[in-house]
């Protein structure tokens, strides 16, 4: 089993490129570079807000986190839909779509967690409270819990095909909550402010702050893409390990029977 006890062996160090390729190395370099520039812009270059002061800098991690989470859950829903539509016709029985859905959902959950955490800190200095059960916060927690449930479902021991089908259905059902979270601030009265940016509405963020927010969103997208690609490859490795284990069991069984 994977226990990490021999992580320091020379062979293992040599194989540290297991899930990396030249493309992902370039992407990693871009993501790290963009993150450093983002920190400079968000913490030093961009101005403080006239009401919130420096607390407004939480905007640059809080808002991009949830945008990336929405995008990840959107990708999970799309690939799950494609899985259901195409798994019978594909040579890999739709495993590629299933892996992509799983990788994106996990990244989405990480960023939703970060959204909730950064939001709580921001809420304390602006609202005066870490948490309130208003519509936006409640639906976001539900989103987080639902996708944790989706990840739990993916870990239930079952036939890979059956598990992938169950997961795809749950992913499509879970995605219903994403627009509810986004529009909750318009549909109900909430303590949470309205969306920072909306299609067809003039941004209520002035120059430097607006561009810093846009740049932060781009940086978070690079980071999330890198995470998703590597997570996809690890899922593939996990499958290879399970297949290997099954073959080994079959070989053992056969050799026992032949005795």
């Amino acid at each position: 089993m994977v226990d990490g006890s021999d992580l320091e062996t020379p062979e293992l160090k040599k194989s540290m490129s297991m899930t990396a390729t030249p493309t992902t190395r370039v992407l990693a370099t871009i993501a790290v570079g963009a993150s450093l520039v983002m920190l400079l812009l968000a913490l030093i270059v961009s101005p403080a807000d006239v009401v919130q002061g420096d607390a407004v800098r939480m905007l640059y991690i809080h808002v991009p986190s949830i945008w990336v989470a929405y995008g990840s859950f959107g990708l999970t829903a799309c690939t799950s839909g494609l899985f259901i539509l195409r798994y019978k016709r594909r040579a890999d029985r739709g495993r590629h779509y299933d892996r992509l859905a799983g990788a994106a959902a996990e990244v989405g959950v990480v960023f939703t967690g970060l959204t909730l955490f950064s939001g709580m800190l921001w809420g304390k200095v602006t609202w005066g409270s870490y948490w309130q059960w208003d519509a936006r916060l409640t639906t976001t927690v539900l989103l987080f819990v639902t996708y944790l449930g989706y990840l739990a479902l993916r870990r239930l021991p079952a036939d890979p095909g059956v598990r992938a089908k169950r997961a795809a259905i749950m992913a499509l059902v879970s995605f219903v909550n994403v627009p509810i979270v986004h529009f909750s601030v318009d549909w109900w009265r909430t303590l949470h402010q309205k969306a920072s940016l909306s299609v067809g509405r003039r941004p209520e963020i002035t120059g430097d702050m607006y561009w810093t927010l846009m740049y932060s969103a781009l940086t978070f997208t690079f980071v999330a893409t890198w995470l998703m690609i590597h997570r996809y490859r690890v899922i593939r490795l996990e499958e290879m390990r399970d297949e290997e284990l099954l073959l080994q069991q079959l070989r053992e069984r056969r050799s026992e029977n032949s005795l």
């Binding site: 994977v2 293992l12 899930t19 990396a20 950064s118 690890v234």
Partner: peptide, 27 residues
Amino acid sequence: GYSVTIISVGFYAAWIVRRGVLIGKEI
């Protein structure tokens, strides 16, 4: 806020890479 975000993403990335290496070695 910024420290927790950076550390969390960093740990998650490291966990993915390490898991890939260990499973790769295992199989």
